[in-house]
Design a protein around this nucleic acid. Structure first.
Length: 396
DNA sequence: ATCCAATTGTAGTTTACATCA
DNA sequence: CATGATGTAAACTACAATTGG
């Protein structure tokens, strides 16, 4: 089995920007490597392919599989027996429906959380390149989207965020080598926290040598920049100058801050995307394992049950409405349906005939894989209670 | 001029370890 | 010998700034 994660424009072939996983295992280093390849605005596609053997792999797939081959050997054992009969079906999933994805901030590793995340629940506005808004979920909106606890207080939203930054003028503190924070020269704020602000990115020491000194923006400066960033992710020259003047920073510093802020946003978004894809991959892997098991059970039934031998060719179909898989026979020689437990039931009616197609295109977009609602392989096991469902009467 | 990606350099924090009372 | 406090260096992290395209 191969799971192909195509990270890129889904209109292109999956070979260009994709990595394939043989059954499991995305290493963190892989994630990091691949996360850097993700481009803003590109969409993620995941392809679930049931493949009979490892032959025929090539290019990127081969490389990726080689890396994880040892770990995958165990997991692949059960899949190598009878899979040759299975058509190489590829289910391409669109993983980024424009609906909030329930990524819980609490469950994210610490590295995925903003250290100063309290105010980042506002909308990641678009219209300026729209980096986060183009994605299915936005790290800037994560807490609000997932209903998390870091909901800023009403007083902290942008509309009410107004500060007087006149205090920065004349209270510049350069933090650098040999210039440890000094409460006398630079002062501490009311909370006892040392003031950290600088209007100079680099400074010259006594010898006139230009030394690069570490600058950290003050909390107020950072907060104000954050609020500004929420309103627009890019700055025009006017805005830049105004911000610089207001914060007593150089325009270049404001510009750099926005560049770095955009980079951080993108990085976090990529990490969240990777985390989401990883979970999708795990879910699909488990689903595939289960399907293989069910397939083996069906084959065992087929060999043991004489009725089954008389069945004509069966095509597995999926009802796009209920997302259940059913079988369609091509002749009228109906055999007793077989339940999931292998027993037969006497029903005079033939199995329902849902919309029939054998291609993966029939699978609707946005299948909620994560809530385990994938269609069951057995066509006769469960029934839906929806009276409006077109297969309701036949299925029951 | 501006943006982005990659990288650098610095400061702050965490962690592991040694020493001492 | 066990324990807690303390100091320290390395590792790690965040981020402002630089560089090159």
């Amino acid at each position: 089995m191969e799971l192909g994660l195509s990270l890129g424009d889904n209109t292109k072939s999956a070979s260009s920007k994709s990595f394939f996983l043989s059954n499991n295992n995305i290493t963190s280093s892989d994630q990091q490597k691949d996360s850097k390849k993700m481009k803003n605005g590109l969409r993620f596609c995941m392809a679930l392919g049931i493949n009979s053997s490892s032959s025929g792999r090539g290019g990127v797939q081969e490389e990726q599989n080689n890396e994880n081959q040892e770990e995958n050997d165990d997991g692949d054992e059960e899949n190598t027996s009878e899979e040759g009969n299975i058509n190489k079906t590829t289910v391409q999933l669109d993983l980024l429906p424009l609906v909030p994805v329930p990524v819980h901030h609490r469950n994210l590793p610490q590295s995925l959380r903003w250290s100063s995340d309290n105010g980042s629940s506002e909308n990641g506005s678009s219209g300026n390149g729209g980096l986060p808004a183009a994605r299915g979920f936005d790290v800037n909106r994560l807490p609000a989207v997932a209903g998390m606890e870091e909901v800023s207080s009403p007083n902290s939203v942008a509309s009410s965020f107004r500060m007087d930054f006149g205090l920065f003028k004349g209270s510049v503190n350069i933090i650098g080598v040999g210039n440890k924070r000094n409460s006398e020269s630079a002062g501490c704020n009311d909370g006892g926290e040392p003031e950290r602000a600088s209007s100079r990115a680099s400074d010259e020491d006594e010898n006139g040598v230009n030394t690069r000194k570490k600058l950290r923006l003050s909390k107020e400066q950072s907060a104000y920049l954050e609020e500004s960033f929420k309103e627009h992710h890019t700055l025009n020259p006017k805005q830049k100058l105004a911000l610089a003047k207001q914060l007593n920073l150089k325009p270049r510093q404001v510009e750099v801050w926005f560049q770095n802020r955009r980079a951080r946003t993108k990085l976090k978004q990529t990490e969240v995307d990777c985390e989401y894809l990883k979970r999708c991959c795990e879910t699909l892997t488990e689903e595939n394992r289960r399907l293989h098991k069910e397939l083996q059970e069906l084959r065992a039934l087929k060999t043991s049950n004489p009725f089954y031998m008389q069945l004509p060719a069966t095509t597995l179909t999926m009802c796009p409405s209920c997302e259940r898989v059913a079988s369609t026979t091509t002749s009228t020689a109906a055999a007793p349906p077989i339940t999931a437990t292998g027993t037969t039931t006497n029903t005079s009616k033939a199995p329902p005939t849902p919309t029939t197609t054998t291609t993966s295109d029939s699978i609707p977009k946005g299948i909620p894989f994560l809530n385990n609602s994938r269609p069951r392989f057995f066509p006769f096991t469960t029934t839906t209670n929806n009276p409006n469902h077109p297969h309701q009467s036949a299925a029951s």
